[in-house]
Amino acid sequence: MNWVYLGAAILFEVGGTTMLKLSNGFARLQWAIPALALYAVSFFALSLALRRIAIGVAYAIWSGIGIVLLAGIGAVYFQETLSWEKLFFIALILVGVVGLNLAGGH
């Protein structure tokens, strides 16, 4: 169940960050307020995951997968560029996340 909480924390954080982008620096409250709510839910879910998952592993997975998902969202929905260099370093983040899991961090 702890991994489900971590997955939920990741998804809510990605949603919150996407809405934060849409809020245009908190100028659009219709996006800023839900962004804050999603961040609150994300942190709550992360706190539940931390009951059984090591903090370093949980945070690395939470932030690493969030980075990967948000890079994709940025490219698809916000027309942000993903150069080969950026893709390479995003792949390294994924390798690190997988490595942490394979190292028995759970």
Results as ranks from 00 to 15, higher is better:
49 A>N: 06
69 L>T: 09
15 G>F: 03
63 S>A: 15
77 Y>E: 04
87 L>E: 03
102 L>N: 00
74 G>R: 11
3 W>I: 08
13 E>G: 13
14 V>F: 05
91 A>K: 00
98 V>N: 14
60 A>C: 13
100 L>T: 07
92 L>N: 04
79 Q>T: 13
89 F>S: 09
6 L>R: 09
58 A>W: 02
76 V>M: 10
95 V>Q: 10
89 F>M: 11
97 V>S: 06
34 P>V: 06
36 L>K: 01
23 S>G: 04
66 G>S: 12
44 F>I: 15
22 L>T: 05
12 F>V: 08
34 P>M: 10
53 I>N: 02
89 F>K: 03
22 L>K: 13
7 G>N: 14
10 I>G: 05
50 L>G: 05
21 K>W: 14
12 F>K: 02
12 F>I: 07
11 L>N: 03
22 L>E: 12
93 I>A: 06
57 V>P: 00
73 I>W: 08
30 Q>H: 13
32 A>H: 07
33 I>L: 12
41 V>Y: 02
67 I>P: 00
30 Q>F: 03
82 L>E: 11
5 Y>I: 04
15 G>N: 02
101 N>K: 15
32 A>W: 07
66 G>W: 00
45 A>K: 02
81 T>V: 10
96 G>D: 09
12 F>Q: 07
79 Q>Y: 14
90 I>F: 06
18 T>D: 04
29 L>N: 12
69 L>D: 08
80 E>A: 11
103 A>K: 14
22 L>A: 14
93 I>Q: 01
97 V>E: 07
23 S>Y: 05
71 A>R: 09
66 G>Y: 06
64 G>D: 04
84 W>M: 07
12 F>H: 09
39 Y>E: 06
4 V>D: 03
